[in-house]
Computed example of a mutant assay.
Amino acid sequence: MAVVFGDGASPLSPVLSNKRTSKSLLNKAGFFLPPMEIQLWMMGAIGILANLYMTPPINLLKL
C-alpha cells in the first residue's frame, strides 16, 4: 500500500489508499486525523482542572 494524501487533505494527514479506507464513513468525517494543538491544550487543561476538583482539601487529610 502506498501512502497518498486524501481528497484535498493537508500533507500533515496522510491516508493509506485502498478501497476499504477510502469509503469509510469515519475516514470521510475526519475521525482519524491527529488533534490540532488547541485540542491538546484544552484536553490538558480539562485534566488538570479535574484533578484539582477531585483532590480533597489538605485540612481533611489531617483528621
Rank of each mutant, 00 (worst) to 15 (best):
V4D: 06
S24K: 03
A50T: 07
L52G: 03
F32G: 01
L33Y: 02
L26C: 07
I46R: 14
I58Q: 06
I38L: 08
F31R: 11
G47R: 05
N51K: 03
A45E: 02
L40Q: 13
I46D: 04
L33P: 00
W41E: 10
F31Y: 13
V3W: 15
S13R: 09
M42T: 13
F31M: 12
Y53L: 14
K19N: 05
L63N: 03
Y53G: 03
K28C: 01
E37D: 09
M1P: 13
S13A: 11
V3G: 08
M36S: 10
D7K: 07
N51H: 02
P11G: 00
M1H: 13
G6L: 10
N51R: 06
I38T: 06
G44T: 14
V15E: 10
S10V: 10
P35I: 02
W41M: 09
K28N: 14
R20E: 11
T55Y: 02
S10T: 15
L25Y: 06
S10A: 14
P57M: 04
I46C: 12
I58F: 06
L25H: 05
L49A: 14
Y53H: 07
S17A: 15
L63M: 03
M43L: 11
D7G: 15
I46Y: 14
K28P: 03
S13D: 13
P56V: 01
I46P: 00
P35W: 01
K28E: 12
L40D: 07
D7T: 14
L63W: 05
M43Q: 13
K23E: 07
P14K: 06
L61K: 09
P35N: 06
F5G: 08
G6Q: 13
L61E: 07
F31S: 09
I48W: 08
A2W: 13
L25W: 11
S17M: 09
I48D: 00
S10E: 12
M43E: 13
P34C: 06
A9F: 11
A29W: 02
M1F: 15
M36D: 09
M43A: 15
T21I: 15
G44N: 12
T55K: 03
P57G: 10
M1W: 14
I46E: 08
S13E: 14
